[in-house]
Design a protein around this nucleic acid. Structure first.
Lengths: 241, 241
DNA sequence: CTCACGTTGCGCACACCGTACGCAACTCGG
DNA sequence: CCGAGTTGCGTACGGTGTGCGCAACGTGAG
């Protein structure tokens, strides 16, 4: 075989038949979420994502303007995971809001990489799924009896609380994930460092009353519920004039 | 002048006298904050930071292990900006907590780049300044009468709310800053997009009751206060058995 | 059936990034 | 005066996002 001929000229070595395969934006987004879930934020590079899809890095740019836009799409797609109660009835609003809040938190913990992105992308001009959730929350507070001007503030209060606490948890969990330990091993391993730090501040020492026999996850769940209950208490107190 | 001699051999071209100048970690951190404030997150590169300090990029590594550690230092340093009330008295706890919350929010808005970093670094093993703030909050809830086990949850609830809402605001503000417009111009410019989006959802349309004659910043301030009041209502309801 | 055209994938190239490494120049204790 | 230790920096490596232009394909007009 003479080497000066183009090596792909032969019929046999020609790339297998279709080879066109039509990349779609949806494929790209779901592949990106998969990659993020498995390897974390900084592992998402256009090259790596491309090779996951058997495509070159720059091929993605036909369907996505740039990396930032990809991330916006990914974030909104993930918002599609939270499900909204079908109806909004007067008495059930508190349970419904609690459910949405739990879903929002669970979504954040399923995809901890979303926390830093939320800080960048914000919730300002985000896609249809995020708007759907916002609108669903509005519906509940509407049914609860909040006047039109106050509904958005009430909804904003609970989303702020949920996002805030879930962000902390997500950062903490992805830190643990990077370390390769389990959550229990992790808290046990930095116990001495914490003890030393709290030696100068008795208030912090008392604060560390975590019983070693309950799973940290249960503590986190209970903390979340506690705060959410307080927020909802404060909001429903507003309703009873 | 023969070229095979080292060109710096001459006494005259020798680098000016001291040239040693002693870089410190503190200098690096404050220069990093300055750079972040002026140009945003992605503008902070070791090279650019180095040249701001008239130093090579890799010189920084003598004082800072790596970029992540720099960011942790920077975040904690910024936490030093929030000031704590000197005393904790029973009746004043609500005002004191309100003040801390306002400070925390103001700090986040002064340094909007902190929002994504908080999502990554979390508040877990953060430095002395952040611990000082946490401890200061504990003191207030302690004085308010919360039992030892509940104090941390109460404090966590209000920090979660503040961080959550401030994160959204920070993302929104840094988006605006990147666009080069003022906040008012910005909201006016995306008005048509919002109108179109809310056409399918009457609830969203109603929500957009922003009067064009009040500054958006005042609206944000009022929204923040509203939510904070509700959170504190819910917490103090806990105190009255 | 033919062929030109629009769409899509991809290789290349560029500028930039974090940072490991080792040398040179300085400070300082002995 | 001299060795040791500290600090700054130049070089280099492997990685990144992405602009650009070419090649291969599906499609519809003639």
């Amino acid at each position: 075989m003479p080497a000066d001929e183009k090596p792909t000229a032969s019929v046999w070595t020609r790339p297998s038949r279709p080879q066109r395969e039509q990349l779609t934006r949806e494929q790209i987004v779901t592949a990106a979420i998969d990659l993020l879930d498995k390897e974390g934020t900084e592992a998402l590079s256009m090259r790596k994502l491309g090779s996951r899809l058997d495509a070159g890095a720059t091929s993605l740019y036909r369907h996505v303007a740039n990396r930032d836009e990809l991330i916006q799409l990914v974030v909104d797609d993930v918002y599609g995971e939270i499900e909204l109660p079908a109806t909004a009835g007067r008495p059930g609003w508190r349970a419904a809001v609690t459910g949405i809040a739990a879903d929002l938190r669970a979504m954040t913990l399923r995809h901890p990489w979303i926390a830093p992105e939320l800080g960048q992308v914000g919730l300002v001009h985000i896609g249809p799924n995020a708007m759907r959730m916002t609108s669903g929350l509005f519906a509940q507070f509407d049914a609860a009896g909040f006047p039109p001007g106050e509904r958005e503030r009430a909804a904003g209060t609970v989303t702020a609380y949920v996002i805030g606490i879930a962000t902390s948890e997500a950062a903490y969990l992805s830190l643990i994930a990077r370390s390769g330990k389990t959550e229990r091993e992790w808290v046990a391993s930095l116990r001495p460092a914490f003890d030393e730090a709290s030696q100068h501040d008795p208030r912090l020492r008392e604060a560390d009353s975590a019983q070693p026999d309950v799973h940290p996850r249960e503590t986190r769940d209970a903390d979340f519920s506690y705060g959410l209950e307080r927020v909802l208490d404060g909001l429903s107190a507003r309703l009873d004039h």
